[in-house]
Design a protein around this nucleic acid. Structure first.
Lengths: 212, 212
DNA sequence: GTCTATAGTCGGATAGAC
DNA sequence: GTCTATCCGACTATAGAC
């Protein structure tokens, strides 16, 4: 086992990830990043090409392992249940757990920024590129587990569930402000369980048309 | 009826709202705002004091009517049902409808930015200031409608539901990218109905402990 | 209230020595 | 690979004429 060499490149990635998550891309300057990382300003443009390329690197470093893990868990489910539909909770867990629980750090918070807003136009495309293969594998699996829902209805319900996940990942900052500290904030493990339970109950509910 | 005078101040507010929603606060310059609004650069600092004060004005112009309307609808529910618990769907509608359906325009999208990330530190406090009174009125009402849930569990479920709302408000941009255009995007009216149904089913589900 | 002009700052990116 | 020094553009904010 060799010592893990903490290279300049890694130090930049670590600090950039944290600052992008906390303050956003536009609000974070390369000067702040390099100062906090204790590296030279010019090293960013040496190791990466530009600030935006740094953002891409920050994103890809984490999203690749997360998505690999999602597909691993999905594969395991499909192997276990063969041609049977996968139980909904298991499917939701395969989708949520790698990002919500296994990864750790500040990337999940940054991911929520990406999901809703982060602006550079070239970045939206990168984001979609990494998410589309996941959607293409998981959507049919959800469809088999919930055969009663037509695809558009299912897609919308998955979206609502993803919204719940986003809320969980960004909730610390929100719960403190709105909840005024009077509620118990559960561990991530418990919160994930509650999210899965919440989403499963909602996704299974019968479609009622024109009820409102 | 006098003609509605479109003042410089209003033109600035309108354009700033749109650009903040589309690009974010930091990525939007006063120069872009004033150029698109067809007004002078210096007029922003005359009518508002600073870029950040402009953001505050943009926010308060919309959030006040929305929150007034939420409380109106809640009052109406409480009058209708007296001491009875309000049906959950009605409560969710009172909370969601003013922002999701009645307001229109780009503010809902901007609201999602505020909810998860928008950075200026002084702004988080303004955001909380406007949301806390709403939370204080709605939370007890939810508690009466779902007496079986302890407060922390209820708070978490409300948060997940809010996540679903956020997803709906920001979903246009997302659905197109991930869904690759193969799904029907319903009208806002229908989407609101689906959101309420989704959230109600999830919030009513029994609490299962240690199931995972 | 609206304009021009500019102050003063900070940002990303690069050149070139070591 | 790492540093210093610097270019150059963009930004917020303001001063002051009209």
């Amino acid at each position: 086992m060799t010592e893990p060499p903490i290279t300049t490149k890694d130090r930049i990635l670590d600090v950039a990830e944290r600052l992008f998550a906390d303050c956003g891309f536009e609000a974070t300057s390369l000067r702040t990043i390099t100062a906090e990382a204790g590296v030279n300003l010019a090293s960013v443009n040496y190791h990466f090409q530009s600030k935006e390329a740094l953002l891409h690197a920050v994103f890809e470093r984490r999203v690749n392992p997360v998505n690999r893990r999602r597909l691993e868990l999905l594969d395991a489910c499909e192997a276990e249940f063969q041609n049977e539909p996968i139980p909904l909770e298991r499917l939701l867990e395969a989708f949520f757990r790698p990002l919500v629980l296994e990864l750790g750090g500040v990337f999940p918070k940054l991911f929520v920024r990406f999901l809703y807003l982060e602006s550079p136009n070239t970045f939206r495309e990168l984001f979609a590129k990494h998410l589309r293969p996941i959607a293409r594998r998981f959507f049919p699996a959800f469809h088999r587990s919930l055969p009663g829902l037509d695809p558009s209805e299912l897609f919308m319900r998955i979206q609502f569930a993803v919204g719940g996940m986003a809320q969980l990942l960004a909730a610390k900052s929100l719960a403190e402000v709105i909840g005024e500290g009077s509620f118990t904030i559960p561990s991530h493990e418990v919160a994930l369980e509650k999210l899965i339970q919440f989403a499963a109950a909602a996704m299974r509910s019968p479609v009622s048309r024109g009820a409102l």
